[in-house]
Design a protein around this nucleic acid. Structure first.
Lengths: 224, 224
DNA sequence: ACCTGAACACCGTTCAAGT
DNA sequence: ACCTGAACACCGTTCAAGT
């Protein structure tokens, strides 16, 4: 009796980089960056242990691609706005993007191979400032000061784990119970009389610091 | 013939938390945070696979301790200085500490259990500003703006991988060859005519942005 | 009470082998 | 050319067992 040959399993639809990046980002958005493994992503998409390696040389290559994809979501300076408005909009846009992809921030620290979207972004920001009459020196100052603040704020927001203001309040209360108020009286005061007051939202701090820097840059720029 | 009993192996000297934290920090300083594993640290100190778990409940507990230890290295505000001077010194001190322990920055993002040194630090900063007459509101503004900038700059410095200025120059040159200059003309200009000029050092940008914020805070404070 | 090895459920990646 | 499973050298941590 002839053995019925096993029907060959339907070969999966071939992948492409863009689709894989989308899936990897979705996985990181949902489960955090620690839930993204080469094996898990591949299996989730119906591939084998090693299938991803046909499209990315290694995990770093995948992470580089994810970061560049995140950069492509940032609003670029547009010709019709003044530099200050453009830089302000960019800052707000980066915060929105970082909120959508919180895992991206921690990765930027270690990425050293910028992709095309990243380079396009940097080029547009520099161009915006140069066109407004910023010297090379002042452009470098502005870029450094703004990006330090923008990404630093995102870092603060993450380490403070401030989701909704309600969560913040819960966290601050738990926090107060945890440490001896007597030993840290100024921290306790700020927590009780400011952070725990109704309407408090750490996110509101963003524009204060941002405008401090933008106004400072404007003064320097006017004195050029 | 009686079997010679195996001489019992010399029991290792018992550990304590402080010593383990020092060793863990030294390991991370030398080989990066990815070289720090519970097993490796334990083996290096003559312990078994699980020995560390007698002193830390898990790896997060160890990381929390390391971060708090790093915080203890930061120069605290001192009574004899004005608030602006104190905040400036603190900012410079944090950069120095982050240069010594580059792995700490990436960890701060995920730490949510501040230790005593961290709380003492926060309490001292808040106290310094309050004593100078900052309202609770302005204290929160100042703390947020300064820390965002300080940690953000450290992040920039790391992602730009600027070691010595010489390395920077090498990196920038390799960088220019890598991407099509024609496609990113403003970025190319800034790189060639500014970054690659003799004497350029990205670290010099730190004080520009810092003073922008400190001066802005001072204006707001004077108007109080 | 303090310590630790075996075992489990994971990783990224090399390599040899399949089509 | 494209794909993938076994195997290797790692992880953090549970658990049972030692002293």
């Amino acid at each position: 009796m002839a053995i019925q040959p096993e029907p060959r399993p339907e070969p999966r639809r071939p992948w492409n980089r863009a689709q894989l990046l989308r899936a990897a980002i979705a996985l990181a958005d949902t489960g955090g960056i620690e839930s993204l493994s080469m094996r898990k992503l591949s299996h989730e998409l119906g591939g084998g242990t090693m299938s991803l390696y046909n499209h990315f040389s290694n995990k770093d290559d995948l992470l580089d691609g994810m970061i560049d994809s995140v950069f492509s979501e940032i609003e670029l300076p547009a010709g019709e706005h003044a530099w200050k408005d453009n830089m302000r909009r960019r800052a707000l846009s980066i915060r929105a993007v970082m909120t959508r992809h919180p895992w991206a921030l921690g990765l930027m620290e270690s990425r050293r191979t910028p992709g095309p979207a990243t380079l396009r972004h940097h080029d547009a920001v520099i161009g915006c400032l140069r066109d407004a009459g910023f010297s090379l020196q002042l452009t470098a100052h502005a870029f450094s000061a703004l990006d330090s603040y923008i990404y630093g704020f995102a870092l603060q927001e993450q380490s403070l784990a401030f989701g909704t203001p309600e969560e913040t309040s819960e966290l601050a209360k738990a926090f107060l119970l945890q440490f001896p108020t007597k030993e840290y009286p100024r921290l306790a005061e700020l927590t009780i009389d400011h952070v725990l007051q109704p309407g408090y939202d750490y996110g509101d701090e963003y524009e204060f610091g941002l405008d401090l820097i933008l106004d400072g840059l404007e003064s320097t720029w006017l004195r050029r």
